[in-house]
Design a protein around this nucleic acid. Structure first.
Length: 426
RNA sequence: GGGCCCGUAGCUCAGCGGCAGAGCAGGGGACUUUUAAUCCUCGUGUCGUGGGUUCGAAUCCCACCGGGCCCUCCA
């Protein structure tokens, strides 16, 4: 905006504002209860001596020039140099105060609608003053106003000054631009955006929502309802305004939750897995999307993800393993035999070599006991992760200390009497 | 003291005079040599509360309760 003043485009508005200084003073008093001295004029001269603009006050206007003073104590945040004199306030030598500048722009650019944040829309606030200035000083109906809302994080406004800036900073690390834009343009403008990423699935769902927009735009089937205008939302969410919307919509995008899972699987070849899922090799753009999402998923797991999204091997036997039945316990006990030597021997324990060998051992052991594989795997997941499902078990176990694996298997296979189910096999 | 926005399913929200909805979460079922599987299937919820208008109110009006943001200057 400061570029405009030197061109002289604002000169007419400056002149009008000065001619109607008494109207402006009256209006400030009436609309906002702001008292300016009777000699105050609505122009800020750039001090010819020190170059400051905030420290000057104009007290006279003769139709061509204004008399201003650069006062040392006019404002608390800067000290003027004390210079004073007459100057023609045109061509960039002076600026209009904020509210007048805003109103002048509406006339200059022919603005018919201008949304603003709700902080400005309060009664007696900036917007009210500028509206009144437009009507009474520049004699023009102000633009239609739409007050838009703020982004709330966990029920509170995101604010650097109130200690929630860390949230903003961290969020940008986890959420790529396109998903962040989705978050902002999705809701109705006068609704606060409620977004609480801490320990919730809000971030994965944001990705899912973006992907749903892409699916719908590309004509793929989607679950649930679609808001009207979804194509526009998708288009505006794209980081590159000139992007090929159809191509972006068609691009393969891995599911965020799935990536977060795979990111925790030891030894997973994620790009190969994604190519399988797509049914074709990823192109360069899709690979870039994958890399971005994978990084986001890892960051999410580190900072925001709820515990249930993390698959940590429990250091002690999970309580959940108490739910296992005798067949499953017998299976775990038998599988412990696959790890030699046992914990009662000295020396390093060794187990099946690698994930494949483990996987084979699991299936063979389960089959030998007539236990369906599904229940065998559930027993393993409960014994190590405390949850009924997880990453491919063979590779999970292969990544752990064999002695630890054997100890855990035996613990769960033969729990203390207090843990055993009533009427269990003797 | 004043202004604006919001209270609808566990969560995020749509619906804004005409049979209370979606996604996610959750329950149940099927299938499976399991890296998130996938496919069926399941929604009574004082629509914040109390009045009012209406043949009919989540929806419009009034009041209240609760939550949030804003109201010097500067841009």
């Amino acid at each position: 905006m400061s570029d405009i003043y030197p061109t002289g485009a604002m000169d007419g508005y400056i002149r009008t504002a000065l001619d109607r200084a008494h109207v402006v003073r009256d209006l400030y008093r009436r609309v906002s209860n702001v008292q300016h001295p009777d000699t105050w004029h609505p122009v800020l001269v750039i001090c010819e001596q020190c170059g400051k603009v905030g420290t000057t006050i104009v007290t006279r206007w003769d139709g061509e020039r204004v008399y201003y003073e650069c006062r040392a104590n006019l404002v608390t945040w800067a000290a003027g140099c004390g210079h004073s004199g007459w100057v023609a306030p045109f061509g960039g030598r002076a600026k209009l105060p904020w509210n007048l500048e805003w109103a002048a722009q509406w006339s200059l650019f022919g603005v018919t609608i201008e949304p603003c944040g709700k902080d400005l829309a309060t009664a007696g606030g900036s917007r009210d003053r500028s509206d009144a200035i437009a009507r009474e000083v520049f004699e023009r109906e102000p633009p239609i106003n739409v007050a838009y809302e703020f982004l709330n994080i966990g029920g509170r406004k995101m604010s650097t000054s109130k200690g929630r800036g860390a949230a903003a900073h961290r969020i940008v690390e986890v959420i790529p631009p396109e998903q962040l834009r989705t978050l902002f343009i999705r809701p109705r403008p006068n609704h606060a955006i409620e977004f609480d990423p801490e320990g919730t699935d809000a971030i994965p769902r944001l990705f899912d929502e973006f992907d749903k927009l892409a699916d719908a735009t590309a004509g793929r089937p989607v679950k649930g309802e679609l808001a009207p205008g979804f194509e526009s939302v998708f288009r505006y969410a794209l980081r590159d305004a000139g992007a090929d919307v159809a191509a972006e919509a068609a691009a393969f995008r891995p599911n965020f939750g799935h990536l977060a899972f795979l990111a925790q699987v030891p030894g997973a070849d994620i790009p190969a897995r994604m190519a399988d899922e797509k049914g074709a090799p990823l192109d360069a753009h899709e690979r870039a999307i994958l890399d971005e999402r994978l990084a986001a998923a890892r960051a999410w797991l580190e900072s925001y993800a709820p515990d249930r999204a993390r698959m940590a091997v429990r250091e002690t036997t999970p309580e959940e393993a108490g739910a296992l039945d005798d067949e499953q316990r017998a299976f775990l006990g038998a599988l412990a035999g696959a790890v030699v030597p046992g914990p009662d021997h000295d020396g390093a324990a060794s187990g099946p070599a690698g994930g494949d060998a483990w996987q084979t051992a699991i299936f063979a052991t389960a089959a030998g006991l007539g236990l369906p594989p599904g229940r065998a795997f559930a027993a393993l997941y409960l014994a190590f992760l405390g949850r009924p499902n997880g990453p491919r078990a063979g590779w999970l176990l292969a990544g752990l200390e064999p002695a630890f694996v054997a100890r855990r298997l035996r613990e769960v296979a033969a729990p203390d009497a207090t843990m055993g189910p009533a009427g269990g096999a003797a």
